Simulated scan of single mutants.
Amino acid sequence: MTTMAQDRAVPAPATPATRDAGSVRRHELAAFLRHRREHITPEQVGLPRGRRRRTPGLRREEVAQLAAVGVTWYTWLEQARDIQVSVQVLDALARTLFLDPSERAHLFQLAGQADPTPAVDCPSITPGVRAILAQMEPVPACVQNSRYDILAYNRTYGLLLCDMDAVPPEDRNCMILSYTNTEWRSSIVHLADAQRLMAARFRATMAGHLAEPAWKVLLKRLRAESPDFREMWDRHEVVSHRSKRKEFDNRYVGRITVDHTDLWLGPELGPRMVTYAPADEVSRERLEKLRQIAVERSAAQAG
C-alpha cells in the first residue's frame, strides 16, 4: 500500500524545560494511541481475527496499514520517539482509530498541532444561536469563524448558493467553495469581484494568524487547487469586513438581491452570524419560496 510521506525527526533547539514538556507530551501521545488501538477490534475495520491473535485490539502494523503510514514510523510514535508528526498523518490516525471530536482534539493537542478541518463543535454555536438561525428564515443566515469555516446554517442558507448538506464538512469553507465548487461559483453574479474581495479579506484577517497551522493548511490548499486564488492572493490586496449588497442566481428561484451583514457573536472578531436580508420585494418573495422548498426537502428526507 502506498504510504504518506513521513516527517523527519529534526528537533529544534530547546531549553531543558521545553524538552521536559515535550517528553511528557510524547509519552502521553504514545499511551493514548496504544489505548485506542487496543480497544478497536479487527472486525470493526474489516480484518479477520485469526486464531493466533494475542494482541488486544489491532496490531501496530494494522494501524499503520489502515492509516497509510510506515510501520516503523508508527512504532516510533508509540515509543514516544522525538519525531515530528504532520496534520495529514494525525487526520489519518484519527479516522483509523474512530476518534470522536473530543478524542480527535486531544490527539492534535498532544501532537502540538492545530486541526485543519472546520471546527464543527464551536462553543459559540449554542442551542440559542441555532434557534435564532431557524427563526430568521426565510432570511438566509449562517455562522462562520474568522477562517470562513461554515459552522452552522439555516435551511434557506443551505440552498442559497449550493446544496450545503451535500458538501463534505471539510469543504464547508467559503474560501474553498468560492474558488473550487462549481455550483457555488455559478450562483454568484459578480464572481470575479467577490473572489477578489474575499482574498483581500482573508489576507487581512490572516495577519493575526500567520503562525497557526490550520490557517497555513487552508492557504496551501487554496494555492494548490485554484489558479484564480493564486492570482488574487499575489496581488497583496487587503480590505476589512463591511456590509455589501450581493446578487445571487439561485437554481431554484432565480435572481436574488440581498444585503449582507456580519453580526459578531463576541467582543473579538471571531465567530460571526452572516445574514442576507432581501433588498427588494421580489427577492423577499423568492427567499420565501426557497424556504418552502427547503422545508419540503427536509420533510421528504425525514420521511
Rank of each mutant, 00 (worst) to 15 (best):
V45W: 00
V71S: 06
Y179E: 04
R37S: 02
A17G: 09
G303T: 10
G112P: 05
D228H: 02
A94K: 12
C162L: 14
E231D: 09
R297K: 09
P56K: 13
G70S: 12
A131S: 10
I83E: 00
L93H: 01
S124A: 07
R26Q: 04
R251E: 09
M164N: 07
W233Q: 05
P116I: 00
W73C: 05
A67E: 15
H236E: 12
L290M: 08
V129F: 01
Y148F: 15
G46C: 08
T3V: 14
I176F: 07
A199S: 12
R130Y: 00
Q144H: 06
D228Y: 00
Y157C: 14
A5C: 03
R130N: 10
R104E: 11
L107K: 06
V258I: 07
A207Y: 01
L97N: 14
L197S: 08
R235G: 08
M1L: 09
R130F: 00
E237N: 01
P267A: 01
S178V: 04
F229C: 05
T156V: 12
P13K: 05
I188D: 13
E62Q: 10
D7N: 02
D249F: 02
L197N: 03
H236L: 06
A192R: 09
E62L: 12
Q113E: 14
I176Q: 13
K244E: 15
D20K: 14
L159S: 11
L77N: 09
S226A: 08
E28I: 11
V120L: 13
R223M: 10
L265C: 08
M4T: 03
V274Q: 09
T3M: 05
S23Q: 11
A279E: 05
F98T: 04
G270A: 11
A119C: 05
Q65F: 08
I40V: 12
R34A: 00
A119H: 12
A199P: 06
V69Q: 07
A214E: 13
R36T: 11
S23E: 13
K244N: 14
S102M: 02
P116R: 00
H27V: 02
V295H: 04
A152Y: 02
P13C: 03
A294M: 07
N154M: 12
Q109H: 07
A64L: 01
R36V: 11
T275D: 02
G22P: 07
Q135M: 08
D234V: 05
S187N: 03
S178G: 12
K216V: 01
M1W: 06
P42R: 06
A94H: 11
G57D: 08
N154Q: 02
T205S: 08
V63F: 09
S240I: 01
L177H: 05
R104Q: 13
P168Y: 01
V258P: 02
P123Y: 10
G128D: 04
Q113C: 11
E103L: 01
S283L: 04
L287D: 03
H260K: 04
A94S: 15
V129T: 06
M232W: 01
L263Q: 15
T182S: 12
E183G: 04
P101M: 09
A111F: 05
L197F: 10
W184A: 02
M206D: 01
H209I: 01
A94L: 12
Q144R: 04
A30S: 09
V258C: 13
E296G: 00
D7E: 11
F248D: 06
R81L: 00
P278S: 08
A92D: 14
R95Q: 13
V189P: 11
Q113K: 13
L265A: 03
L151N: 06
